[in-house]
Write a protein that binds this DNA or RNA. Sequence first.
DNA 1: ATGCTTGTTGGACGAACGTACAACAAGTGC
DNA 2: GCACTTGTTGTACGTTCGTCCAACAAGCAT
Lengths: 198, 198
Amino acid sequence: MSQKPAFRRAEPDERRISLIEASTRVLARDGVAGASVRAIAQEAGVSPGLVGHYFAGIDALVAATYAHVEARVNVVLDAAVNGAGPDPRARLDAFVTASFSTPLASGELLATWIAFWSLVRSRPEIARQHDEQYAAFRMRLEHLLGACGLPAGRRRHAAIAITALVDGLWLELCLSPHAFSAAEASAIARAMLDALLG
Amino acid sequence: MSQKPAFRRAEPDERRISLIEASTRVLARDGVAGASVRAIAQEAGVSPGLVGHYFAGIDALVAATYAHVEARVNVVLDAAVNGAGPDPRARLDAFVTASFSTPLASGELLATWIAFWSLVRSRPEIARQHDEQYAAFRMRLEHLLGACGLPAGRRRHAAIAITALVDGLWLELCLSPHAFSAAEASAIARAMLDALLG
DNA sequence: ATGCTTGTTGGACGAACGTACAACAAGTGC
DNA sequence: GCACTTGTTGTACGTTCGTCCAACAAGCAT
């Protein structure tokens, strides 16, 4: 009489990612308050003890979740830029506007961001991770701005400004979805690009 | 032999505020993860059971803390605007710039905001509270913009844009204090005002 | 087949959590 | 002074938390 295996032995990376994705779902559903080792293990369909074999604790798992989700966001942004064709301004518009469309502008994504932000102040290595991600986003924007002909000396401030505007619009869009629409957010961001590029 | 009272019977509002301020300090020190009934009661110098007499739970206390801190922020913004004199543009500049100076741009304040944001998605009454606060901030900005001569039809988008830019700059300033300076944030915000009003 | 490595389980443990409640005492009205 | 109200205390209860670890078994090497 053949009995099916009690569990499956997964590739380390595969199990890691399945835990990260379970963490993403728990954060999206229950927020940072519901993100416990037990809840995430149950969501992933594994025993609670397994989480400790892959992550030092909830904080490390949240940091890995942020990195993973952020990489996925970058894929969406890449696709938007590349789908916009060769015109530099069109590529910049696509990059900026993509943040406001589904599935990027959603409360589920915001939950991961908030969980990550809540760790920045107390965990130096997480603060560093945030600094790097933020700097990378800004650098990417500087390149797109350079392609549009913005002089090198003005790129830094312009990139900081656009990043802040996009972050602020995205945040409010997630928190108060009916205060203004994604289309309005896009129009506002494009107007600022017009003003900056002149 | 006279012995001092074991505790003091406080005015209801006074005790409420002392609990709220204790909550503010705990959030600033330990973040949302350390904000427990016991920790806040200890910080306020009262017994744990007393928190339940004033607030239904941690969520209600965090919401009250947010409202209280936000009122204090408005006092600072008021002072900045009134201290700027009669010139409409100077008043607008002061309003926008005040967010980047101490003590408004600080990780301690951010901790309260993050704790509040983490409740917006799951608690409808807290979502409403956020909507109202956000709308009030935006309305205030619209009045200041109107005083600068911005046509009524353009005030809404301008207010949304400025709010988002200020929020984004403030957020990054709190999370990554060395990515750019408060003076740079002010300069960026003023440049956007120039573009909008010019 | 057999043994070895190690991913995985599941429960035990102490700590901390929110909540509830009986006892106490500070302040007030009489 | 005395009784009454109620703000306040302190504790006990059940739950859930993170962590730990001995036992188990899946998959690979031989």
